[in-house]
Structure formats: C-alpha cells, structure tokens
Nucleic acid binder design. Structure first.
Length: 430
RNA sequence: GUGAGUAUAGCUCAACUGGCAGAGCACGGGACUGUGGCUCCCGGGGUUGCGGGUUCGACCCCCGCUACUCACCCCA
C-alpha cells in the first residue's frame, strides 16, 4: 500500500456532515448583514506581505511570526515579490476599496467579507491554521452612530444563530491624542509593581503594556487591580464619542459590560473596541478561545494604507468557533431531501429517474438509491438521509399512473397521481 | 515558541500483576417475498501511531520519534 498523504497540520476538512451548520451560519451572515445594507466583497487569499506589515502592524504576533510568507517566483528581470496568505480580512478589504476608488465614489460604504484566513499558530480548540472569518466594515463615518449600528449588526447576527449566552464587552483605547498619556501612566504604575508580575508580564511591560491588563495569572490580576484605566485618561473628543456610543447602545436596549482589559492585538484600532464572548462551558463551550466576534474603530488605517483620511469601524467573527458552539448545542442542521423516490422493478426505475429529474427542475430536492435493491433497503436509506416523504413506485402503481406517497414523520401513506405530484408536494408544505 | 496529557476497528472506549485484541455506535445482511425508526440474530472490518529495547511471551514495562488534544502565548 502506498503511503498516505495527510492534511497539513492545523488545516481541517469540513465534511458533508458538517456543512449543514456552515450553510446555516453563512446564510445568516448574508441575511442579517444584507438587512443592514452590507455588500459582500471578495478579495484574493494571497496579498503582498507589505500590506499586512503596514496594515496590521509589524510588531504584532500575527505579522511577526504567524504569517505564511514566501517569495513569488522571480520574473524575467525583476526580483520576486514577498507574498503572504492573508491572516485577516480588514487590510485586504481596505486595500481593495482604495484600489477601486470606493472612497471617491461613496462617502459611506458598508462592506462585508467571508472566507478563509491563515495563521501559523499552535492549534487548539477553536483555533486552527486555516480558519474562516466573516467581517463587516463601515467606511466613512466617524460618528458613534456607526459604531452603534455595527455592534447592533453583530449582536443581531449572533442572536439569529441562536447563541443566547454571548455577552458584549466594551472598551475604548483612546486615540493618538490621549493614548500616549494613558500608556505612560500605565507604565509608571507597572514599574512600581514589577516584582509582583509574572515573567511574561515583565516582558510585556516594555513591548505592549496594555497586554499586562489581560494576563490570566492571579498574582498579576491582583497587582493590576488598581491600574489606571484608559477610560479615565480620555481626551475630550474620545470621551464624548464613548459616552455617546454608550447612550446609543442603551437606546438599542443592547446590554454590555465595560471591560477595561480588552486590548486588541492589531495595531490599527483607535477608540472603540469590543468583543462578543461566549459563556458556554464544558463540552459545548470553547474553552479559552471563547471570543467569538471582536472589532473596533480604526480611523487611521485607510490613510496609512495610502487612501484618503476616511474613518472606519468593523468587526470579525470566527466562524469555526460559531460552528463549534452550534455543534455543541445539540441542534440539528440536517438538510434532508423533500422526497425520496423508491422504485421497484426495472421499468419503475427508469420512470423514477425521469420523475426525479422533472421534480428537481421544479425546485424540489429529490433523492433516490442508484443501486438496485429491495424496498426495505430503500426505506432505510430514505430514513437515514432524512427525507420528509417517500414515493413508492412499483409496477402496479406505474401502470395506473399512480404511486404511494408516505410522510415519514407520521408514517401515513396515500395514493397520488404522478401527474399532480408536484402540486401535492407543494400543498404538503415541503 | 513553552508545558501537560493522550495514542487500540470509521467513531467512543475496554482488555486483571506482562498470558489467544473485545464491546457499543456506525456500516452490510437477515428475522419481515412491497415499507424506515424500535427489538433480536448474523457479518465484514486491526501491522494496538512508528522504531528500537527488556522478556519464553508486550496493547501493557523502558528509550527514542511522530501525531493529536488541552493549556500558556496569541487571537476570531
């Protein structure tokens, strides 16, 4: 036997049995975001590495050590260009918007994307090297109304999935006017308590002091309990923005908790940041990877990527994690056929093939067993694939232009004319 | 990148102190000649992750490797 070639580490096959959940999630993305006026954009999976270095931030872990990067084959006279599999969706969407002059043509745009992202991390529950993200972005409004509508869209999306134990956590990071002062205050505070911090945090103090606030170590948590909060160091415009957003969320009856420990891992965020966190625990939960959707405002990103000075706010949701939550919910997302046609005898088989084709053309989802076999086996098959109805087509029925239509759920069965079968199925509410 | 745990049938797991590798589910068939689910019966399926060592004998003990899982880190 030849040696087997297996999938690349951290990259999962989504098998047909999983797709019911995924279609459900993707359907809700299109439905919900469509209602809010978001239009889909699809960008390439491969981008120039420079896009992420500039857009996401050179110092971030994502860009610094998690990207799949390689040199493109060199052309005739030029050097190869460094390319990367996209690790996130915002920078590519912004790149496309700039490239196609979206900002020159529409002062306000709502875009969403959906697709695979790649990060070379050590995988664990809900964290894979190829994973799927949906993201929504609003370009062109600096006002808190944009933040509020976007958060509302994320909230309604998660509710539409039936995820009730998800909570919204909110924070603000300030902007270039007030964040430096806050960071200085924080660093001063931390320096006085260096001895109480874990090794990781002593390192983070210099590299990314905000992260110390997010440490799970109990001693660190205690040490930073009285740390300065970004909310207390906001400049006047940032404070007004945050207060207005909170009032708008209250008006939307959208519950949230303030969490000063939320810090985003991407450099481009300003002002508003938020996370939707799943509180489900145990088998159906997500363990430590429980942030299911997260985002914030990034007013400087478009300009820093060479576009006009246009403000933006957006979020991304991890679809693998949502699928995991749905899988643990015990709900069924089976996509069974309307009708399974069971045929007996060669001429009935021939008729069944044509009948299936006609009904499929009418819009019905039809299944049949393509192997010859007894009625029992075909019934079992129909049950297994979750068919709502079974049509039993034998030689006797065929001669009379009839067949028996059985509703699987109740077992009731009655004769129907083949000519009126489509109308019958429609009437049955299938 | 760091730490811990696990590895036996497609899946979930058994197998006493080292003594013939098993069950449930799933799959196929039958009980029921043209009626699914429930029940009962039968069946196919295995290099016990890989390599070495100890032993009369290894799923079991020892060493190495690999993979996976969870956690840290990071993030959605």
């Amino acid at each position: 036997m030849a040696e087997r070639i297996t999938a690349v580490k951290g990259m999962n096959d989504l098998l047909p049995a999983d797709m019911g959940r995924w279609h459900f999630i993707e359907g809700k993305v299109r439905d919900l975001l469509g209602r809010y006026g978001f239009a889909e954009v699809r960008t390439p999976i491969l981008e120039k590495t420079a896009l992420f270095v500039r857009g996401v931030g050179e110092g971030t872990d994502i860009v610094g050590k998690e990207m799949y990067t390689f040199e493109d084959r060199a052309g005739e006279a030029q050097q190869g260009v460094m390319l990367s599999l996209r690790p996130e969706g915002t920078a590519p969407a912004v790149r496309a918007a700039i490239e196609h002059n979206q900002f020159g043509q529409e002062p306000l745009s709502r875009w969403y994307y959906l697709g695979p992202m790649f990060r070379r991390e050590r995988q664990q529950k809900g964290r894979y090297r190829q994973f799927y993200q949906m993201g929504a972005e609003i370009y062109g409004s600096a006002e808190p109304f944009a933040d509020a509508e976007l958060i509302d869209a994320g909230w309604r999306f998660l509710r539409a999935l039936g995820l009730d134990d998800v909570t919204l956590e909110l924070n603000t990071l300030g902007d270039e006017a007030c964040r430096p002062a806050f960071q200085n205050a924080l660093i001063t505070f931390l320096r006085e308590r260096t001895a109480e911090l874990c090794g990781d945090c002593q390192r983070r103090m210099e590299s990314n002091p905000l992260r110390v606030l997010d440490c799970k170590n109990e001693r660190c948590k205690a040490a930073v309990a009285g740390a300065p909060s970004s909310v207390d160091h906001l400049c006047e415009p940032c404070r007004a923005h945050f207060d207005a957003l909170r009032a708008l969320l209250d008006g939307l009856k959208l519950p949230y908790v303030l969490n000063p420990r939320i810090v985003r891992g991407l450099d481009y965020y300003t002002r508003t940041v938020f996370e939707f966190v799943s509180r489900a625990e145990g088998e159906g939960g997500l363990g430590s990877q429980n942030t299911v959707c997260a985002g914030g405002r990034y007013d400087r990103l478009i300009k820093s990527l060479g576009g006009p000075d246009v403000p933006a706010v957006g979020f991304a949701a991890g679809l693998d994690r949502l699928a995991l939550l749905l899988a643990g919910s015990g709900r069924s997302f089976a996509e069974g056929p309307h009708l399974f046609i069971a045929s007996l005898g060669e001429s009935a088989r021939v008729r069944a093939l044509a009948l299936a084709s006609e009904l499929r053309a009418e819009g019905f989802k039809i299944d049949q067993d393509l192997r010859s076999g007894g009625l029992k086996g075909q019934m079992r098959r129909a049950d297994k694939v979750g068919a709502k109805f079974v049509l039993v087509l034998g030689e006797d029925e065929l001669a009379a232009g009839k067949a028996k239509l059985k509703r699987m759920e109740t077992g009731e069965e009655r004769e129907v004319l083949l000519d009126t079968l489509a109308a019958e199925l429609r009437a049955c509410g299938s």
